[in-house]
Amino acid sequence: MMITLRKLPLAVAVAAGVMSAQAMAVDFHGYARSGIGWTGSGGEQQCFQTTGAQSKYRLGNECETYAELKLGQEVWKEGDKSFYFDTNVAYSVAQQNDWEATDPAFREANVQGKNLIEWLPGSTIWAGKRFYQRHDVHMIDFYYWDISGPGAGLENIDVGFGKLSLAATRSSEAGGSSSFASNNIYDYTNETANDVFDVRLAQMEINPGGTLELGVDYGRANLRDNYRLVDGASKDGWLFTAEHTQSVLKGFNKFVVQYATDSMTSQGKGLSQGSGVAFDNEKFAYNINNNGHMLRILDHGAISMGDNWDMMYVGMYQDINWDNDNGTKWWTVGIRPMYKWTPIMSTVMEIGYDNVESQRTGDKNNQYKITLAQQWQAGDSIWSRPAIRVFATYAKWDEKWGYDYTGNADNNANFGKAVPADFNGGSFGRGDSDEWTFGAQMEIWW
Score class of each variant (00 low, 15 high):
3 I>N: 10
5 L>M: 04
8 L>P: 14
10 L>M: 06
15 A>S: 07
16 A>P: 13
20 S>F: 08
20 S>P: 03
23 A>T: 03
25 A>S: 05
30 G>D: 00
31 Y>F: 07
32 A>P: 14
34 S>A: 14
34 S>Y: 05
35 G>A: 08
40 G>S: 03
41 S>I: 04
46 Q>L: 13
49 Q>R: 02
50 T>I: 12
51 T>P: 14
53 A>D: 09
54 Q>K: 13
57 Y>F: 15
58 R>H: 06
60 G>C: 11
60 G>S: 03
61 N>S: 10
63 C>Y: 07
72 G>S: 02
73 Q>K: 15
75 V>L: 12
77 K>I: 02
78 E>K: 10
79 G>D: 04
79 G>V: 08
94 A>V: 01
98 D>A: 09
98 D>E: 03
100 E>D: 08
106 F>C: 14
106 F>S: 05
119 W>R: 13
121 P>T: 13
124 T>N: 09
124 T>A: 15
127 A>S: 10
129 K>R: 01
132 Y>S: 13
134 R>S: 14
134 R>H: 03
137 V>A: 10
153 G>A: 04
161 F>L: 12
162 G>V: 10
168 A>E: 15
169 T>I: 06
170 R>H: 04
173 E>D: 11
182 S>R: 10
182 S>I: 01
184 N>D: 01
187 D>V: 02
188 Y>N: 04
189 T>P: 15
193 A>T: 03
194 N>K: 10
196 V>G: 11
198 D>E: 09
199 V>E: 09
200 R>L: 10
202 A>V: 05
204 M>R: 13
204 M>T: 10
205 E>K: 08
205 E>D: 08
206 I>T: 14
207 N>S: 10
208 P>Q: 06
211 T>S: 07
216 V>L: 06
216 V>D: 09
217 D>Y: 10
218 Y>S: 12
219 G>A: 01
219 G>D: 00
221 A>S: 10
221 A>P: 03
224 R>L: 06
226 N>K: 04
226 N>I: 03
227 Y>C: 03
230 V>I: 05
230 V>L: 03
231 D>A: 15
231 D>N: 06
232 G>D: 05
233 A>E: 14
236 D>A: 05
236 D>N: 11
238 W>G: 08
249 L>Q: 08
249 L>M: 06
250 K>R: 05
250 K>M: 03
251 G>V: 06
252 F>Y: 03
261 T>S: 09
262 D>V: 00
265 T>P: 02
266 S>P: 01
266 S>L: 02
268 G>V: 07
269 K>T: 15
270 G>V: 03
270 G>W: 01
271 L>M: 09
274 G>C: 11
274 G>A: 06
275 S>F: 05
277 V>L: 07
278 A>E: 10
278 A>S: 14
280 D>G: 14
281 N>Y: 15
282 E>D: 12
287 N>D: 10
290 N>D: 02
291 N>H: 05
291 N>I: 04
292 G>A: 03
300 H>P: 05
303 I>S: 06
303 I>N: 00
305 M>K: 01
307 D>Y: 08
307 D>E: 11
307 D>V: 07
309 W>R: 00
310 D>E: 11
313 Y>D: 08
317 Y>N: 01
320 I>T: 05
321 N>S: 02
321 N>D: 02
323 D>G: 08
323 D>Y: 08
324 N>I: 04
325 D>N: 08
325 D>E: 02
326 N>I: 03
327 G>V: 06
329 K>R: 08
331 W>C: 03
332 T>A: 01
334 G>V: 07
336 R>H: 00
337 P>A: 08
338 M>L: 07
339 Y>S: 09
340 K>N: 04
341 W>C: 06
343 P>Q: 02
345 M>V: 01
348 V>A: 01
349 M>K: 03
351 I>S: 14
354 D>A: 04
356 V>L: 12
359 Q>P: 12
360 R>L: 06
363 D>V: 13
366 N>I: 06
366 N>D: 02
373 A>E: 15
377 Q>P: 07
381 S>R: 14
382 I>S: 12
384 S>A: 10
385 R>G: 11
386 P>S: 03
395 A>V: 01
395 A>T: 02
396 K>M: 01
400 K>E: 12
404 D>Y: 02
405 Y>S: 12
405 Y>F: 07
405 Y>C: 05
407 G>S: 00
407 G>D: 00
407 G>A: 15
409 A>P: 12
413 A>E: 12
414 N>H: 10
417 K>E: 03
421 A>T: 10
424 N>T: 15
425 G>D: 03
429 G>C: 11
432 D>E: 14
434 D>Y: 13
435 E>D: 13
437 T>S: 14
441 Q>K: 14
442 M>R: 14
446 W>G: 15
